[in-house]
Amino acid sequence: MPETALSSATPDAAASAVLEVRDLSAAYGGPDVLSAVTLGVRTGETVAVLGANTAGKTTLLRAISGLIPKARGHIAFEGLALLGRPAHTIPGLGIGHVPEGRHVFPRMTTLDNLMMGAFFHRGAKDIAERLERVFTLFPRLQERQAQLAGSMSGGEQQMVSIGRALMGKPKLLLLDEPSHGLAPIVVDELHGAIGAINRQGVSVLLVEQNAMLALSVAHRGYVLEAGHVVLSGSSQSLSADPGVRRAYLGV
């Protein structure tokens, strides 16, 4: 795919950047699966990362959360360098991560799963309020709060996973294929919720294989191919790009 000059990055964009990734490379012991990736999320934005299976999208999010020890380059969250920090200290800075495959705690109730999301803030006075906000966003979780998370449907588990991340009061939410394997009606519901979360002031970095879906909620997007950013731009320009349409929109 040609390196189209669609980047909307402007020199002053860094000033209000909540997340800045520069020249990020990462490997799992073998060859690099991310090569010199540069991208950013500005405060209040929803940014999509598109790309086929094995492009490196999950690795990118895992590197931000400190889960890839062999990541090199530069990652800054609100100006704070992240690389080298122990992974368990990252959520406390204000980053919520909804991992690929949901990863709920299967033998805990919905309520305990959500409570675990506030682990870093244990003892905080506003935990009841946070819970209230999650239940407002996903009323179904309130009904199912005593149910074991492992026994719930895929869509409900995804809500638990997102709700758990929100309990940490993130400023930036990393979402890894939240709609994967879910029925269209559930996907609509989830994407509605993602829009609502963003409108409440949470910046979002959204990974999806389904480009159409991602671009419908995102302001901007990046296209990742074999560990390289090959394209970036506003959601409109990406949806109009012939290469993107051919490769990811099936048009």
Binding site: H88, G92, V104, F105, D112, M116, A118, F119, R164, A165
Partner: peptide
């Protein structure tokens, strides 16, 4: 207890526990 819940969380999914701030 928070520590007890963290122990159960790590047993069930260590990565997810890390992502909510548990020092595994």
């Amino acid at each position: 207890s928070w520590t007890g819940r963290a122990i159960r969380a790590v047993a069930q999914d260590a990565m997810a526990a890390t992502l909510v701030g548990v020092d595994t």
